[in-house]
């Protein structure tokens, strides 16, 4: 059965590392849904967040093959960790002839932000899990999406909580 996995990969912050990871996916015909890369708290390392899709065997191979790369320092399967995931999307939505008010309602419901306004379009920023972003896209599709860009998911494990905090529901 196909599943989606979020994988956090800590790598050497060196030229060519992205190519090694990307080459691994293309060379072995692994499916990649999104990939986000940036520096970490330690400037000698970068962190890639990869969202990959495949059956159990393929996902296991992806984790092992990533681990095998010399420049990969650590691979964490975020799907087995409690983690926070976020993705950001910028969406230019057409507004001519449609109700701007209706669009603003959707923006409010999704706690999105309007960044740029013209007579023809609004450019909206929306942040959240990919589910939330997909939901937002569904809602604004009827207005006409002129342009869209998504960052891909990034994720961090949740901090360890005391029992008391958990009881209070502060883990959300």
């Amino acid at each position: 059965m196909e599943q989606t996995k979020i994988i956090a990969v800590t790598v050497e912050n060196q030229p060519g590392v992205l190519a090694r990871v990307a080459g691994l996916f293309s060379g072995r015909a692994f499916n990649i849904i999104s990939l986000a890369v940036g520096e970490t708290e330690d400037e000698s390392m970068s962190r890639m967040t990869i969202v990959a899709r495949g059956d159990e065997g393929v996902l296991e191979q992806i984790l092992k093959q990533l681990n095998k790369l010399i420049d990969v320092i650590k691979v964490v399967d975020m799907s087995v960790e409690k983690c926070i995931q976020r993705e950001l999307a910028l969406i230019k939505v057409g507004v001519d002839g449609k109700s701007k008010q209706e669009l603003m309602t959707v923006v409010d419901i999704f706690r999105a932000k309007v960044l740029d306004v013209s007579n023809e379009s609004f450019t909206i920023e929306v942040t959240g899990t990919d589910e939330k972003i997909n939901g937002f896209i569904d809602m604004v599709e009827s207005f006409g999406i002129k342009e869209m860009v998504r960052t891909g998911t990034i994720a961090l494990t949740r901090a360890k909580k005391t029992k008391k905090q958990e009881a209070k529901g502060e883990s959300k």
Partner: peptide
Amino acid sequence: ITGITRPIVKHNYI
């Protein structure tokens, strides 16, 4: 050559 050989080496360096 590091790009060309990337999939056929254990590792490479420039």
